[in-house]
């Protein structure tokens, strides 16, 4: 469904993505893990069109998307939930959802927009309770749910999630991951998930990539990754003693 081949990207003169290749098949959940500054967020920004591609190719459902701007990619069915909960903080929860459904509104009108917002409220009841509250005053977990709900408003086929668990209590992380799983079970959604929390991510993923300083260094099934010694040492953060004792 999504395929990156030898993609490079720069911030000014800094070469942040070096020949990155990865693919996500339809219906899969794929996770991209790696240390801080490895280039995970940049990879997602590049797929969603916020970051420009220098060399290499990016295709979505067979179509070259490397030159298409972010606002047009949403129309093609790619939704990106960026890191740090990029919601519209001075606006109310319902306004945020309306904006999330901007394209839906443009194409199908107000009625469809209202219907989809109700669907989101059904899935995230906490947002319904906070309907008229300013988004910036929501708790971290609520903001993350709002960010995901906004992305779902335009009925994407590929969902790019950037560290949805960042700064959240384990219980909330679990809830959010449950929701992601549910979404997948219900519709034909494909997910590319970037995470620091490799443990949680690998549990819901089918496959995973490990990224280090702008390069993909490992690609494997999620289960295999969980057992991979190097991944364990670097990203899963447990079994340290086991390693030393060997």
């Amino acid at each position: 469904m999504l395929r990156l081949v030898n993609v490079n990207s720069y911030y000014g003169l800094v070469h942040v993505l070096k020949n990155v290749s990865l693919h996500v098949n339809k219906g899969e959940t794929v996770t991209l893990i790696g240390a801080n500054g490895a280039g995970k967020s940049t990879t997602l920004r590049l797929i969603s069109g916020l970051q420009s591609v220098k060399g290499g190719e990016v295709t979505f459902e067979g179509k070259d998307i490397s030159r298409i701007s972010a606002e047009k990619l949403v129309k093609l069915g790619i939704a990106h939930v960026p890191e740090n909960r990029q919601i519209f903080r001075p606006m109310t929860v319902i306004e945020n959802l309306e904006l999330g459904g901007y394209l839906l509104y443009k194409e199908n009108g107000k009625k469809e927009l209202g219907k989809t917002i109700d669907e989101m409220f059904a899935r995230f009841p906490i947002l319904k309770e906070r309907e008229n509250q300013l988004a910036g005053t929501l708790s971290g977990g609520e903001q993350q749910m709002l960010a995901i709900a906004m992305a779902l408003m335009c009925r994407p086929r590929l969902l790019l999630l950037d560290e949805p668990s960042m700064g959240l209590a384990p219980l909330i992380v679990k809830e959010i991951f449950n929701i992601i799983n549910e979404l997948k079970d219900q519709g034909d959604l494909t997910v590319l998930l970037v995470e620091q929390n490799a443990n949680a991510a690998l549990k819901i993923a089918d496959r995973g990539y490990v990224m280090e300083t702008g390069k993909i260094i490992i690609e494997e099934d999620a289960e295999a990754l969980m057992k991979n010694q190097e991944v364990k040492r670097a990203y899963l953060g447990h079994d340290k003693r086991e390693m030393w004792e060997k």
Partner: peptide
């Protein structure tokens, strides 16, 4: 408020 986020909803 947030230009990137606006573009990501298709604006």
């Amino acid at each position: 408020i947030n230009r990137d986020a606006a573009r990501l909803v298709g604006i």
